[in-house]
Structures are given as structure tokens and as C-alpha cells.
Amino acid sequence: MINIKNLSKSYNKGAVKAVDNLNLQVKPGEIFGFLGPNGAGKTTTIKMVIGLLSADEGSITVNGFDTRKQSLEAKQSIGYVPDNPDVYERLTGLEYLNFMGDVYRVPAEVRKERIQYFTEMFDLNHAVSDLIKSYSHGMRQKIVLTGALIHDPALWVLDEPLVGLDPKSAHQLKELMRAHCDKGNSVFFSTHVLEVAEKLCDRIGIIHRGKLVAIGTLEELRKGDQVDTLESIFLELTEK
């Protein structure tokens, strides 16, 4: 679903190497957890997958589309939720969702069904006619999530998706992620909550100082040592 090859990105005219020769694949049907300390390069990588940042070197394909050469097709395959839901405050929730429906060309009937499904699930149906300006952080997160999933994309890219969500919504989102991947789709998400990654992810990648320091299933990361928790593996890899 995602194929990242030799990806590099630096800031401040090469002074800070944010992502350093990263190679990574996310397969269809899997939830891939992307972990790393603050400033490790998670968000930079995610933003390059989405097309918010351009890579200095390397290539990314999403659902078979090169994100540089076939950017619109790649974007059509992705539903993205950023870590900070900065969204049009002066639109109502429903206007925002309809806007997303229009730009992703979702037919009215399908759109209606999906909006109703998600707004009811996230308990937003009482707020969709209000301006987003009046929403709490969690509500914004939910409206962005709904907007990102409205076109039923093959790949969900979620940057810290559980931050700000109430326990019920967080639980529902995790269920949704599982169900989405069970249909052969994929989820690529970053998190700092290691317990969530441990329970939810099919595979995990750990990035540290721009380099991928570990990748695999939890079993593979443990290297046969059943006592190791993800936390101890993470700390061991990132405290070098």
C-alpha cells in the first residue's frame, strides 16, 4: 500500500537531517504503527507521504501511484488526519464535510450515509450545524477524522489520532481501524501510546534521529525474548 524508498529530508539548508535514507513498506490489510521520540522524524515522514512536504531524495508510492508524478491519484487513495486539527473555523461541521465530499467527488447518497454513520458514532450530530470555531479539540479531531474518511480511502494516514479523543471515541476509532484493514486496506499511524501500538498494530516501525532503527511484528522486535515489552524495546533502541 505504501512503498517508501531511500527517503531523505533535511531542514535549514541541510543542517538538520529530519529523515535519513528511510525504506519502508506498508502492506495491504495491515495496521502499521510508526513510533519514535519527539523530533525523530515521524511527522516529517507522514507529511511526505501525504504530499505536504517534498522529499529531498527518494520516492514514495501509495496504492501504486507515485506521490510526485501522480499526486492527485495518490491523494484520492489517502485519508489523512494531522496531529493538530487546524480546520476552517468559519465553516459549520456539515459545510466542511460537504466540502470534503465535493472535492473527493463522493456522490450525495453515499456521502449522506457516511456522514450520518460517523457523526452518530462520534456523537457529533448535535453539533454539525454549528461553526467549527465553537468545537472543542476532541470535536475538531472527530470532524477532521470524518472528513478524511468520507471517500472511504484505501489508506488511512493518522498522525497521533487518539490525542484529544474521549475513551469511547478512541475505542471506536481503534475498532474502525481494525475493520478497515480486515477489508484489505491499510492504516499507517503514529502514536506515543505504546500500549495501543502493542495491542493494535500488525507491524511496528521505530524511527530515531531520522533513521528507521527497527521494523517488524512485535514478535520480531522481541527477537524471541517473550519478557520484553514494547516499552523496553523502544527505550533500548532510542536511548543509544
Binding site: I50, G51, K75, V87, M100, V103, Y104
Partner: peptide, 9 residues
């Protein structure tokens, strides 16, 4: 909110 414009197809 420019990320939305960059992200949409």
C-alpha cells in the same frame, strides 16, 4: 489550514 488544500485531490 493550508494543509487541507495540499491534501485534497
Amino acid at each position: 489550514s493550508f494543509w487541507i488544500s495540499k491534501m485534497i485531490p
